[in-house]
Amino acid sequence: MGSTGQNPPQRNQTALVEFILLGFSDVPSLQGFLFGLFLVMYVMALVGNSLILIITKTDPSLQMPMYLFLGNFSFLEICYVSVTIPRLLEDLHRQNRSISFLACATQMYVFLVLGVTECFILTAMAYDRYVAICNPLLYPVIMNNKLSSQLAGGCWISGVPVHIGFTYSIFSLPFCGHNQLNHFFCDVPPVLTLVCGDTFLIEMLIYVIALLVVTVPFMLIVGSYVKIISTIMKLPSTTGRAKAFSTCSSHLMVVALFFGSGIITYLRPKSSHSPKTDKFLSLFYTIVTPMFNPMIYCLRNKDVMVALKKFLLKWIVL
C-alpha cells in the first residue's frame, strides 16, 4: 500500500499515453470460445433487459412505482454491460488491445457512475417495498408518481459529480514503468497497480467513497428487509405471506449478487488482490448479474411474467 520505492525518471511518468488491456490474452487457445460466450451473454442481457424496460413502460398493469424503478434498473443494466463488454469483444477479436489514456479514464468514470446509480436504485426499490408492505394504507400517498420519479432521477445524477473528482484524482497520479493492465477494462484496482509512489491517500479515498455509496445503501437495504420480513411474518394469511415474499425475493437475490461481488472487489485489502480473482469478480457484476436479472424478476414476479407473456403473444400474432 505504501511507496513502491524510488520513482523512475520523470520522462517515464509523463510519457504514458495509452494502456494495453491484457484481458484474457493468457489463454490464447480460448479466445474464440470466450468471444462466443461473452457475445451470447451480452445479447441475452440486452434482450432480457430491453423486454423488461418495454413492458414496464407499456403495460397498464405495471404503471406503479415498483415497476418504474424496475424499468430504470433494466435501462441501467443495458448501459452497464455496454460500457465494458463491447470493448472486451473487440479485444478478443483483434490483436491490438491498446486503449488511450483518455478513453481509459472515460470508461472508468462512466462505469463508476453507473455502479453508484445501481446501488442507489436498488436502495430506492427496497424503500418502495418497505412502504408497500409495512405501511400499505399510506403507500399511494407516500410513493406517489412525483416522489418516485424524483427518487429515480436522484439515483441517476447523484454519482456524476463525485466520480468526476475521483477519476481525475486517479489519472492525475504519476504512472511509470509498464503500461499493461491485467484486466479487461479500466477498473480502479488494476489501474492503481501502475501508479508510482505512495497510493495510501487514494486508497483511503476509495474506502470512504465505497463506504458512502456501497456500504451505507447496503445497510439501508438490510434494515428495510429486517422490517419487511418482520411485518410479513405477522400476516395472518399464508397466501398473503407467500405473495409478499414473492415480490421481495427477486430484489433480494439481485442485491446479494451485485453488492456481494462489489463489496469483495472494492473493500478487501490491497494485499489480497490478484488479477485472476479481480477479473472473475468483475465478470460477475459486469455481465453475469445483468444477464440473470431479467430472468430473476420474470421467474419470481407473477405480474412481470404475465405482462411479458401478453407482450410476446401480441408480437407472435402480428
Rank of each mutant, 00 (worst) to 15 (best):
G5N: 04
L16M: 14
V17Q: 14
L21V: 00
L22P: 00
S29D: 14
L30I: 00
L37G: 00
L37D: 02
F38R: 08
M41R: 00
V43W: 07
M44S: 11
V47C: 08
G48N: 05
N49H: 08
S61F: 03
L70F: 07
F73Y: 15
F73S: 12
F75S: 10
L76K: 03
R94Y: 12
R97K: 14
S98M: 02
A105F: 03
T106N: 09
T106R: 07
Y109D: 05
Y109C: 06
V113Y: 05
C119F: 10
M125N: 01
A126T: 02
A126K: 05
R129E: 10
Y130L: 13
Y130H: 15
Y139K: 09
M143A: 09
N145L: 04
L147R: 14
S148W: 02
S149C: 07
Q150T: 04
L151R: 12
I157P: 08
F171M: 10
P174W: 07
P174E: 09
H178V: 04
L181N: 03
V188H: 04
V191I: 15
L194F: 01
C196K: 02
M204P: 00
L205R: 11
L205F: 12
A210Y: 05
L212F: 12
T215I: 15
K227H: 13
G240C: 09
G240I: 05
K243Y: 06
A244F: 06
F245M: 13
F245P: 01
S246L: 05
M253L: 15
F259G: 08
S261W: 08
G262Q: 12
T265K: 09
H273S: 07
S274T: 15
P275A: 12
D278H: 04
S282A: 14
L283V: 02
T286D: 04
V288T: 14
T289M: 14
T289S: 05
I296M: 13
Y297S: 03
R300V: 00
D303W: 01
D303H: 10
F311M: 11
L313I: 07
L313S: 12
K314A: 15
K314Y: 09
